[in-house]
Amino acid sequence: MLEIKNLHVKLEEEDKAILKGVDLALQAGTVHAIMGPNGSGKSTLSYVLSGRDGYEVTEGSASLEGADILEMEPEERAAAGLFLAFQYPVEIPGVGNMTFLRTALNSQRKARGQDEMSAADFLKLIREKAKTLKIDADMLKRPVNVGFSGGEKKRNEILQMAVLEPKMCVLDETDSGLDVDAMKLVAEGVNALRDAGRSFLVITHYQRLLDHIKPDVVHIMADGRIVKTGGPELALEVEANGYADILAEVA
């Protein structure tokens, strides 16, 4: 599904390397988690994959189902099936949540050569998806993320994911700022989307999200590299002992 090879990335504005040779391969239908201390490059990896400005790839590659995504515009990556759930979802005053979702869905369909979805069909779809995430009609009508609580913003990210049905979902610290109940709701939303044709890359600081979204593979990232890869037990090890032991072991 997603294949990252020897990815090196630096900040565009300054000569500072952030990713120093990341290798990662996700099979279709799998859930991988990336854990790591602050400043290890986890979020940068998600930004670079989604095509955010300000980063320069100096070496290496990233491909989605064989297509080089680094050459694509952000909207092309989305149409190709990549989705980033933002750590800090953006507030957009004046743009209704429904309008936004419908425009996004139809833009992607158009880019893939499909017909646009009618207003009636879209309404049916969104109502059904919103219900499972406990998103009420008011949240759908309001401007995108404006006045939403932290939990509502994250649920709204998952709603977008559910509506857009991407193949490759990157979740950037989706658990940050969530209480236990909100985290469960978000995790349920993600689990409902687990499918043989869809992969997830879950970036998190803490193991507790992984209690709810069970990963197949766990990676530890430090100083711009994947330093250790293992099964779900690796996340429990981090929870119990912190990163220091693992980092000392691989150093």
Binding site: S50, G51, R52, D53, E73, P74, E75, R77, A78, A79, L84, F86, P89, V90, E91, I92, V95, F100, T103, A104, L105, S107, Q108, A111, Q160, L164
Partner: peptide, 15 residues
């Protein structure tokens, strides 16, 4: 707002 612009594009909406 460049951040908002990127958010919209990341959902597949052309620039």
């Amino acid at each position: 707002d460049e951040t908002a612009l990127f958010y919209l594009r990341s959902r597949g909406i052309p620039t």
